[in-house]
């Protein structure tokens, strides 16, 4: 088990004032899987991944990545170790071109003008934005900005790609495209997905973690979760 565990949290907690946003969560992620975290609004999903990628300091608990304790590392250092996070609210660099956006994420890994040009073109092609390289990101339609956000994530060549509500605001056709893309990505990286769209979750996730009130309520394969009466009561049924 330990050999395949990519990421584990031990008793991870975060309190905002008196509110326990995340409360003693033990969460483990295996190398190569696609995992979804679901739960009602305010369940603590974004706070949990915020602590995993270093955007939020935990009040208590530890985070381990590839068997190393990374609790004390800053966000940028975690990114360098292979944890990439794409934002819930799209935050590509609106004033820069698509090329520069992706190049920013890729240039720590790929050196030299030509090689970088090729790599950026490849990544933009992969998310279907090949012909948009010279366009300023801020004028792209919303769906395309989300795709660009994913291209930024891929450009980091992460071991763990965390996607926070990636399909929010996308059309059905765009969602299909997105699901195909993620299955493709999963061949190289472990994917952790926060998602409200249950169709996407059921289609993509190999395992599902259900959170409620800052704790993990249930965990298992999609069928098990669907059949779990506790989960139905807390979340699916409502």
């Amino acid at each position: 088990m330990a050999a395949v565990t990519l990421l584990a949290t031990e008793g991870l907690s975060r309190h905002f004032g008196g509110v326990k946003a995340v409360d003693g969560v033990d969460f483990a992620l295996d190398r190569g899987e696609i995992r979804a975290i679901i739960g009602p609004n305010g369940a603590g999903k974004t706070t949990l991944v915020g602590m995993i990628c270093g955007r939020i300091d935990p009040s208590r608990g530890r985070v381990r990545f590839e068997d190393r304790d990374i609790t004390g590392l800053s966000a940028w250092a975690r990114v360098q170790r292979g944890i990439a996070y794409t934002f819930q609210i799209t935050s590509v660099f609106g004033g820069l071109t698509c090329f520069d956006n992706v190049a920013l994420a890729a240039q720590r890994r790929v050196h030299g003008h030509r090689a970088l040009d090729r790599e950026v073109a490849r990544l933009l092609g992969r998310v279907g934005l090949a012909d948009r390289a010279g366009v300023v990101a801020g004028v792209l339609p919303y769906g395309h900005q989300r795709l660009l956000e994913i291209a930024l994530g891929l450009a980091l060549k992460p071991k763990l790609l965390i996607l926070d509500e990636p399909t929010q605001g996308l059309s059905d056709a765009e969602i299909d495209h997105f699901c195909a893309l993620i299955r493709d990505v999963a061949a190289e990286a472990t994917v952790l997905l926060i998602e409200h769209n249950m169709a996407v979750v059921m289609e993509l996730a190999q395992r599902i973690t259900v959170m409620d009130n800052g704790r993990i309520l249930a965990e298992g394969a999609p069928e098990e979760i669907r059949a779990n009466p506790q989960v139905q009561e807390a979340y699916l049924g409502s």
């Binding site: 800053s74 940028w76 360098q80 590509v92 930024l152």
Partner: peptide, 8 residues
């Protein structure tokens, strides 16, 4: 956002 691309 720049921090989250791995830059100190």
């Amino acid at each position: 956002r720049t921090t989250m691309l791995g830059y100190h």
